[in-house]
Amino acid sequence: MAEELIRLVNMNKGYMLGEERVPVLKNICFTVERGEYVAILGPSGSGKTTLMNVIGCMDVLDSGEYYLDHQAIHSMPQEALTEVRNREIGFIFQNYQLIPTYNVLQNIIMPLIIRGMGHREAEEKCMETIRLLGINHRLEHRPSELSGGQKQRVSIARALVGEPALLLADEPTGALDRSSGKDVLKLFGQLNEMGHTIVMITHDLSVAKSAKRIVSIVDGELSEQPPG
């Protein structure tokens, strides 16, 4: 029986707009098992980014429960959430979110450095990931010297080096051309085959179809889509 990695129970999240509270996520109940590749599909304003922020421990829920790898995220203080983000989650952003003043290698090893590792040890540890992603010839380059596809590979490498329980991707192909986007999705497939759990947020059905499971979000409510 597969092990549960993410479990959201009756989760609600909203924002204050002036004096009025606007609900964004309503009574979300959602589970992801370890090794799954899930796409959360929804149009703009559906609440998918808010859901990603909650799953990524970057935002807190108003009510309900959230368990990640059996840890009760909903009752954790900020400091603990910071550590969870570092150890349990690998983020892949639409616009890559690489630090422009660092070179490729420095960007990739940052999660390990933050974890308290020395840079030499971190560099050794990430070499296999770098080879896997085919960016070993670009290590000294700055992000501004890379193509979109290469930037996203760097971003994926950074997400992978910490060996997180969950890869959380927000519109990973949104800023890429079709060919690069396909490469990234293919890579996601390979990573999932290797055992990585991936949750991908997208508004694009064709992208979502690369996942093994699609969950739709409309007006803050989740609904499972039938496979195929």
Binding site: R85, N86, F91, Q97, I114, R115
Partner: peptide, 12 residues
Amino acid sequence: EIGILKAIGCDR
């Protein structure tokens, strides 16, 4: 940059 660092687990 601060946002990126915090997202990947850099504490205050």
